[in-house]
């Protein structure tokens, strides 16, 4: 237990430090990179809670995909740091008041006393051959099937909202449409045969004149 506790404090300290860096960095890209670190150490904390599937999904989804999205958003916004910093002192009192109110609310609602954690003893550590992903699967698709389907609806709403908000047609752009490309027929669309008058006679005349010219140059 001692080593596990030590690991917990190490990863918890990394998480808190990284989260602090996220909100204090001036450069938003650095803040996002610290957020990646915070996600990694949170995944380690979840592993310590023996939620290994959730921990790995956290790395896969948040670090792999959501952070890429955050970086894209940062690049799109073209953040002007000077305008962001302007008015910091002016809004500081109001910000402090809101922060204190929120902190008190969080302490009241999710404080350690509210869940009765002391009534639930720590469960015994799982054996080495217990598969966490199986335990999740056995519950998720039977007892929690309704929230599971709701998750699908939320994802559907996300797809439609993203498309409605960001998709726009650009009629002026030039691009190749592969479906039109492969519809080209072999004969008339690819090769155009041009009937042309033969120029062989003209070329012979030209050649004879060139020979006569060179003979004149040689004799001179």
């Amino acid at each position: 237990m001692g080593f596990e506790k030590f690991l917990f404090y190490v990863f918890a300290a990394i998480t808190v430090l990284a989260a602090g860096m996220v909100v204090t960095r001036r450069n938003p890209v650095h803040a996002v990179l610290y957020l990646v670190l915070a996600f990694f150490s949170s995944a380690a904390l979840w592993l310590l809670l023996e939620a290994e599937f959730l921990g790995l999904v956290l790395v896969l989804v948040y670090v792999g995909a959501v952070m890429v999205l955050f970086l894209f958003v940062l690049m799109m916004l073209d953040i002007d740091l000077a305008t962001l910093r302007a008015g910091f002192i002016r809004y500081l009192p109001l910000g402090v008041v809101i922060a204190v109110v929120m902190a008190v609310q969080i302490l009241l609602v999710v404080g350690p006393g509210n869940f009765g954690a002391e009534q639930f003893p720590t469960p015994a550590a799982a054996a080495a051959d217990v598969s966490n992903i199986e335990e999740v699967g056995l519950l998720l698709y039977t007892d929690y099937v309704y929230p599971f389907e709701l998750a699908a609806v939320i994802l559907l709403v996300g797809i439609i909202a993203a498309i409605r908000l960001t998709l726009r047609r650009r009629p002026g752009t030039k691009y190749l449409d592969p479906t039109q490309q492969i519809q080209v027929r072999k004969g008339p669309d690819r090769v155009r045969l041009v009937s042309q008058v033969s120029t062989a006679g003209l070329r012979e005349e030209q050649g004879a004149r060139d020979v006569a010219q060179s003979q004149e140059d040689g004799s001179a």
């Binding site: 989804v61 792999g64 995909a65 959501v66 890429v68 999205l69 994802l155 996300g158 960001t166 998709l167």
Partner: peptide, 16 residues
Amino acid sequence: YLVAILFILFDLEIAF
């Protein structure tokens, strides 16, 4: 952004 968010949504589907 659109490509990235569509990727995330189907990524979550695979996680399920």
